[in-house]
């Protein structure tokens, strides 16, 4: 058991680490991109970016610049100015919608299927090779196949989320169901509970923590995958937004996108963590 640490001391240390990191970043870039070359013809210099005008290259943005841009983006996150220019809040909402749709369908398929596999050792052994082969496939490898067969880019993105987030849920459900204690099943049988009653009143509560763990892993994967998928299909979403700002070589916006993706991923994980706590049981 780890020794308890006080929350405020940990928070303080986190803040110090963050401050050191950002301060070091800011300082390291002080004066970066200054070429110090000979003075250029003013007419020529006016046509160049700030750094290039002094003979250097446009440098990595400083944290202070990123902060200013973040404030600018967050002060109006939900604007829509045409199909290619929408606020960052709208983009995140699109991504969340796709993730929840793909993840939801995956849960609807994986949990019942996992139940069946967990209850039947024969099916478990028969399906295991397929699951083990398909499980480690990268989302990007599914994408061309999805685009070619489905021929619709937004459905393809949802399909890729589905196919990548189904495996942890499937495996965990199957494991949780097969690991239910024999005594409990025997008790249920002695009390003459039917198959359905046993499944819902005994097996489901017993396996719920394991299933929730699988869902928690899956939502993490789904959120990882959406960025890659949206970069490929384009249109809307935070992944597309990253790709778009990359086109514009706007590194500050990409840093902000990384921050946003991290925060939303954290929130999703915490939500499922809370759900897991609700179904946890102690003997």
């Amino acid at each position: 058991m780890q020794r308890e640490v006080s929350a405020w001391r940990a928070a303080l240390l986190s803040l110090v680490i963050l401050a050191l990191f950002l301060g070091g970043w800011e300082l390291a870039l002080q004066g970066a991109g200054q070429g110090g070359g000979p003075a250029l013809d003013p007419e020529y210099a006016a046509l160049l970016g700030q750094a290039a005008a002094t003979g250097g290259q446009t440098p990595m943005p400083k944290p202070s610049e990123i902060g200013r841009r973040l404030f600018q983006l967050l002060s109006d996150p939900f604007y829509i100015r045409g199909p290619n220019d929408q606020g960052i809040g709208i983009q995140i909402a699109w991504s969340l919608g796709r993730v929840l749709l793909g993840f939801g369908i995956a849960a609807l398929v994986a949990i019942p299927l996992g139940f069946v596999i967990g209850m039947s050792p024969l099916l478990n052994a028969a399906l295991n090779p397929f699951i083990q082969v398909l499980r480690p496939v990268s989302p990007l490898a599914w994408m061309p196949l999805a685009l070619f067969t489905i021929q619709d880019s937004s459905i393809s993105a949802v399909f890729v989320i589905f196919i990548c987030s189904i495996w942890p849920m499937l495996l965990n459900t199957a494991f949780g169901v097969s690991a239910v204690r024999r005594e409990w099943l025997n008790v249920a049988r002695t009390l003459e509970a039917g198959t359905w009653r046993t499944a819902f009143r005994v097996i489901l509560p017993a396996a719920a923590p394991t299933i929730l763990t699988g869902m928690r892993i899956s939502i993490g994967i789904a959120w990882l995958v959406i960025v890659a998928a949206e970069m490929l299909v384009g249109g809307t979403g935070i992944g597309y937004w990253v790709w778009n700002q990359w086109n514009n070589l706007s590194i500050a916006d990409i840093c902000i996108a990384i921050l946003m993706i991290g925060l939303v991923g954290l929130a999703l994980d915490r939500l499922l963590g809370l759900a897991a706590r609700a179904v946890a049981w102690n003997e």
Partner: peptide, 8 residues
């Protein structure tokens, strides 16, 4: 032009 603008 962007390559020139960014000094690359």
């Amino acid at each position: 032009q962007r390559a020139v603008f960014d000094g690359v």
